[in-house]
């Protein structure tokens, strides 16, 4: 009876398991393997040893794309998580909380392409709302996406609005903080800041750390949609990122081997982020027990 029940439960898990296998594990394994082949999908793959890796490593565009990716992903991620946390803190209770929840989630709810086009307009160097605002305040008006110096800050600014997922997670996590803990601190005379520092932050640290890692991964994708639509990687490669390198290698030049070799770098970057999070967790002795892992 019990075994049978469990077996049926596992049956319910089957689509998920099969999906992970077919849509994640298999493609991931394929890309790992394809890195050792020359493959254009038109003719059969030819084994090429480490050729793709040396091609990628010596490609100056590749190196540039890695640097740009780190700049576009690692800088906004902590800011976004911080923003999401702050917004969640304010949206936890009190008046206007529903309005705030709707507002914070809205930019993430609209299609990424619509969001990107909105920023194409906002960041228009001469007539866009942002520069009009800056001009009316007598501030300097950068060229944003048209300027090699300002294109990256412009994109980093835009992605700060996309905090929907982090916001939801923070909000859910905040609800999990036992109310009596906070109440006890308040009775002891702790101010809002002290409660935040000594009660909420320690409790939420694992979630925030995890979110930071997830956010960096998410940004990889979001930054591609933005750069692809807004700058095409320009001006003069200022916003040329690793996802674009991979996209162009695979879908423009049909060089799936080289794209896969570049993917190894992507996995390395992701691994690095995870390792960083893990190290910080160890350093600060933040509990990473399964119980706290569960959102």
């Amino acid at each position: 009876m019990n075994r049978d029940y469990d077996r049926r439960l596992r049956l319910l898990l089957l689509p998920y398991a099969a999906g992970i296998g077919l849509l994640f594990v298999l493609p991931a394994l394929m890309s790992f393997a394809l890195a050792f082949f020359r493959y254009d999908s038109l003719s059969a793959p030819r084994f090429a040893g480490l050729v793709n890796f040396s091609l990628v490593r010596t490609d100056s565009l590749f190196n540039l794309s890695v640097v740009n990716t780190l700049a576009l992903v690692l800088l906004p991620a902590p800011l976004r998580v911080f923003g999401a946390f702050l917004a969640a803190l304010l949206a936890r209770g009190g008046r206007l909380r529903h309005l705030l929840r709707a507002a914070v989630f809205l930019p993430s709810a609209i299609p990424a392409t619509a969001f990107a086009l909105a920023w194409l307009w906002i960041l228009n160097p001469l007539y866009g709302p942002l520069n009009r605002l800056l001009a009316s305040l007598s501030l300097a008006t950068p060229g944003w996406l048209a300027d090699a110096q300002w294109a990256r800050p412009g994109l980093a600014l835009a992605v700060l609005w996309l905090v929907g997922e982090g916001f939801l997670v923070c909000l859910a996590a905040l609800y999990d903080v036992p109310r009596d803990l906070e109440d006890a601190a308040a009775v002891d005379g702790a101010g809002a800041w002290a409660i935040l520092r000594h009660v909420l932050l320690p409790f939420l640290a694992p979630v925030i750390l995890l979110l930071m890692a997830r956010d960096a991964v998410l940004l990889l994708q979001e930054s591609f949609t933005l750069t692809w639509l807004l700058t095409g990687g320009g001006p003069y490669y200022a916003t040329y990122t690793l996802p674009q390198f991979i996209y162009e290698a695979a879908f423009d030049r049909l060089d799936f081997g080289m794209a896969s070799a570049a993917l190894w770098a992507l996995y390395a970057v992701t691994g690095l982020i995870l390792a960083l999070v893990y190290t910080i967790a160890r350093q600060w002795q933040i509990g990473m027990s399964e119980e706290e892992f569960l959102l």
């Binding site: 001469l126 007539y127 060229g143 996406l145």
Partner: peptide
């Protein structure tokens, strides 16, 4: 110029 072309 570059900015004018980017704007329109």
């Amino acid at each position: 110029n570059r900015l004018e072309e980017a704007a329109i």
